[in-house]
Structure formats: C-alpha cells, structure tokens
Amino acid sequence: MSESPRRPPGRNRVLSLLDRLEREPAADKVIEVLRSGVRALPLGRGRDVLHGRWLGHPLHPLMVQVPIGSWMSAAVLDLRPGRSRESRVLVGLGLVAAAPAALAGWVDWAELHRQQQRVGLVHALSNIAAVGLYATSLSRRVRGREAAGRAYGFLGLTAVGVGGMLGGHLAYRQASGANHAEEVPHVVSEGWHRVGAVADFPAGEPVRRSVDDVPVLVVREPGGQVHALAERCSHLAGPLAEGTVADGCVRCPWHGSAFRLSDGWNVSGPATAPQPSFEIRIVDGYVEVRLRHQDGGRPARKRMTHTARR
C-alpha cells in the first residue's frame, strides 16, 4: 500500500497577516502626518543621539530593555504574595523609562520605508496600549486595589508581547535598523579592481560602478583626488550615486545620511554604520580600487566557490 503524498505545509497565518499589513495603505495619510510631525521636532544634534549614531547601531532596542525588564519583573513578583510595594516600584520605573525609549523609536520610524512604517505604527500603538494599561495598573495599586492592578499589569504585558513581536518583524524580517552595507567585505574579492578611466569620472559628480556585482560609488574631487565607497547606503540601501556631494561628503537622497568620502565615516544620521571604503590607485590613466583592510590589517574573506562548499 503506497503512502499518500504529503501536503506542503500551510503558510504561517501570523506572517500572512503581517505581510498584508505591510501592503495595506489605509493608514498612509496618518503615517504621513506623523512622519512630518516627528521630522519637524526641534531636536538638533539630539536627533543623531536618538538614532544611536554614537553607539554604532540604533538606540531604541537598547532603551526598551528597561521598561520591558521592569514590567516582566513586576509580573513575576505579582505571582508571589507580599511583594506589592516592589511591583509598584517596577511598574513606575517602566513607565518613566518608556518615554525616552518611545521618542527614540519614533525618530527612527520617521526615516523608514512606507511598508516598515505601516508595521511600525501598529508596533507603536501596541506599546501605547501597554503604557496605558500599566498606568492604570499603577493607579489601581496606589489606591490599594492590588487585584485590579495585577490584572491590568498582565494585560499590559500581553500588549508588550504583541509590540515586541512586531518590533522583531521590523528588525529581522524588514531589516529596519540593520546595516545594509555589512555584506560588502564578504562579497568583494581581494586585490585591485579596475573601475574605469580617470576621464570617466567628472569632477565633483558621483558615479556608480560595480566590483564583483557590488555597486561602488566613485567621486573625483576638483583637485584630482579620487574616492570610492560602497554605493548602497548603510541605513536603508539608498543609492548614494544619486545623492549630492559637498564639503568632502556624499549625502544619501533618501533620508539624508552623510558619509565622509575619504573613509566612509557617517558624519550625520539616520545611518548608524559607516560605508565600506576603498583604497585608490591610478594605473596607466585608469582608476583601480581595493577594499580597505585587505593585504594588511584585517584580511578580507575570500569568496567561497562551489568547489570550496563541497
């Protein structure tokens, strides 16, 4: 008796809902108003601080550990008798810490793609609901209604869990906050690569070339010095070759991140990671580039071939 063929596994319902959310334009007008409002906040240099440029990666995921940890700890204490005072302190601490964490999140959210913003808005609404529930929980606890306070606390923790799931989708499925240039050192092969004649690069204009199928930005300054960086912005892979060059930097046309041409350092956000940069040499009137830190310093990883995999 032959076995019946297995049915292919069904699609994950949660992921299907999230995929639909990414494509749903119903809230786009609200998103645009909120985005403009967040961008208009007079934060000055504090905006880059909130982005986490000084840290090298987004600040928001680090800051949310305090409210989440406080509320989780309060839930554990709520399962044990005689710990009401400690639970109140932890719930209050979480509420205080939620405000700066939310501000950092909103600042990052305003510089995302629309599909990411749609998920991010629901993520924010889940966390706002959690804050409201925990504020109610604290109010009930202060008034001596401990049972109600614990109930609202557990509801708040549920909302936090939903928000965390959506935050994970944003970070790992949609790659918001990830370094979109991280793979460059792993896919560009060692050695020098010819990218064109010097005359092919008009002074002061960004030009896109390719090395091992990796887009590379080449800029020749009016004085003759040539620079090369990975062309896709580390923030969200924006095309730097379509950006503007000024004051020794290139500015991304999508979200305004600026990178120093000499070494790829991100001088302003929202990008939190620098651009991989290339060494330059001129040979017989042609520009050749080599990824920095090769042949000295940290060696680049050799490209893996099919033979090597076997």
Rank of each mutant, 00 (worst) to 15 (best):
G248F: 03
R145M: 01
I280G: 03
V142L: 04
A246S: 13
L95Y: 11
A230V: 10
H123L: 12
D48Y: 05
A102F: 05
P215Y: 07
G69M: 08
P253W: 04
G285D: 01
A203L: 10
V245F: 03
R303A: 06
R281L: 02
S257L: 05
D295E: 14
Y172M: 03
H193T: 11
A101F: 01
R23P: 00
G196C: 11
K29W: 06
E24R: 10
G224F: 03
V38R: 00
E231V: 08
A181S: 15
R88D: 09
V162N: 01
V195I: 06
A98G: 05
L261A: 09
W109E: 08
A148V: 00
G92R: 03
A129F: 03
G191K: 06
R141K: 14
A74F: 07
A97C: 12
G132K: 02
R173F: 09
P81Q: 05
V38D: 02
H227E: 08
S73E: 01
G297S: 12
D284V: 01
L62Y: 10
G37T: 07
R194W: 00
V30N: 01
S4P: 06
S4L: 15
V91A: 09
N266M: 08
P67Q: 05
G161I: 09
A129D: 09
A27S: 10
G177C: 10
L90W: 00
H227Q: 11
R301M: 11
L59F: 01
R303I: 09
G191L: 02
H180C: 00
S73V: 00
R45D: 05
M72D: 10
S2P: 13
W254Y: 08
P276I: 11
R80E: 04
S2G: 00
S73L: 09
E231A: 15
V267P: 02
A300S: 11
R301T: 13
G238C: 04
P58A: 07
M63H: 02
D28Y: 01
V64P: 00
R209T: 14
P239T: 10
S126N: 14
G52S: 12
P185C: 05
G264L: 10
R85F: 08
G56C: 10
R88Q: 15
M1I: 07
S16K: 12
E3S: 14
V250W: 10
A181W: 05
I282M: 06
A101T: 02
H193D: 13
A75T: 12
V91P: 01
D48L: 10
A98Q: 02
L59E: 02
S2D: 10
S16H: 13
L17K: 03
E231W: 05
L133M: 14
G105E: 12
G153F: 03
